[in-house]
Computed example of a mutant assay.
Amino acid sequence: MITRNRVPGSPEAETRRIGRSLGLLAVLAFLALGWVSFDAAIERREDPNRNLVIAPGASELVLKRNRAGHYLLPGLINGQPVRFLLDTGATQVSVPAHLGPVLGLQPGAPASVMTANGSVTVRQTRIDQLVVGPFELRNVGSHLNPGMRSDEVLLGMSVLRHLEFIQRGDTLTLRVPGA
């Protein structure tokens, strides 16, 4: 049997090295594509309403429940984008205190509120403009909550009391009563 001497740096060795490098790059590209697809699928399950499209003149908002049973949706506070979590158990809109300066919210009088985690001292504030889907509210009662670590804003009854709710399966429709 005849074997060839493989000389490092020869054209054949260089071709094999390039081939292995391209193969490795292809595997890495395949893994990256799989990771991006998997990450997007998880995000769709966690926040199915993140890319809501509101038709001009719409009078209702249709939301899908996430896999944890919550309704999350994008919105605006004083023109700044936020992510709302609908919370019918919250009396007011509860804003994580660390978001207050970014959203242009001024801390007011302290108040004690009961949360799922117990009593918390919050600072009262007013939201000049709150937009959720096709709905815009002004001068909304809210508070800055120092106990909230996430960036999600709890959309409480100070907003939700102005809307009608219709829940069917995993879908929640919000509309102005009588519309």
Rank of each mutant, 00 (worst) to 15 (best):
F84K: 14
F84C: 10
L85T: 03
L86N: 04
L86F: 06
D87A: 04
D87K: 03
T88Q: 04
G89N: 08
G89H: 15
G89W: 14
A90P: 01
T91E: 13
T91N: 08
Q92G: 01
S94M: 02
S94A: 09
S94P: 00
V95Y: 05
A97D: 04
A97G: 04
A97M: 04
A97W: 00
H98P: 00
H98N: 01
H98W: 00
H98M: 03
L99V: 05
L99F: 00
P101H: 05
V102L: 10
G104E: 12
G104I: 15
Q106Y: 12
Q106I: 07
P107L: 05
P107M: 10
G108E: 12
G108Q: 10
A109V: 10
P110N: 12
P110F: 05
P110I: 08
P110R: 07
A111F: 06
V113I: 15
M114G: 07
M114H: 04
T115V: 04
A116E: 06
N117T: 10
N117H: 12
S119D: 07
S119F: 07
V120R: 05
V120Y: 02
V120T: 01
T121D: 11
T121N: 13
T121Y: 12
T121K: 13
V122W: 00
V122I: 10
R123Y: 03
R123G: 13
R123C: 06
T125A: 07
T125E: 05
T125W: 05
T125N: 02
R126E: 08
D128V: 12
Q129C: 15
Q129R: 14
Q129V: 14
L130Y: 12
L130N: 12
G133A: 05
G133E: 11
P134C: 15
P134W: 13
E136C: 13
E136P: 08
E136F: 05
L137W: 15
R138S: 12
R138F: 11
R138K: 10
N139A: 14
N139V: 15
V140C: 07
V140R: 04
G141T: 01
H143G: 01
H143T: 13
H143P: 01
L144T: 11
L144P: 01
N145S: 10
N145H: 15
N145F: 02
P146I: 06
P146L: 06
G147S: 04
G147Y: 02
M148T: 03
M148C: 02
